[in-house]
Amino acid sequence: MEKEHVSGEQHHPIRVYLVVWGALFILSALSYFLDYFDIHPLWLQRFLITAFALIKAALIANYFMHLRFERPALVYAIVLPLVLLVVLAIFTMGEGDYVAWVRQFFFGSK
């Protein structure tokens, strides 16, 4: 068992945390301003907000939760199942859109 991978023995310089912390602030502020100034086109705004959220989540998981320093066996075991959630989201959203379309199409008033 490699020693450097046994958790509880990592030593992270505090500087790393401060940088990540700062990045989180900046990204949150950026998302906020995207919304505040209502940046157009809308798809770009939505894409950026989603992308920033994902980056923030990755930062938190990687550095604050130390996922980056864990052995890949854990990392993959935690990250891969999340794909199944993406599948769920695709289909619930597809269903929502479909129902909205049906209502628009048949009842004429959304």
């Binding site: 769920l88 289909f91 619930t92 269903e95 929502g96 129902v99």
Partner: peptide, 9 residues
């Protein structure tokens, strides 16, 4: 509301 959403969940 959307009854089918529940069925998906």
């Amino acid at each position: 509301g959307n009854p089918i959403l529940f069925q998906h969940l």
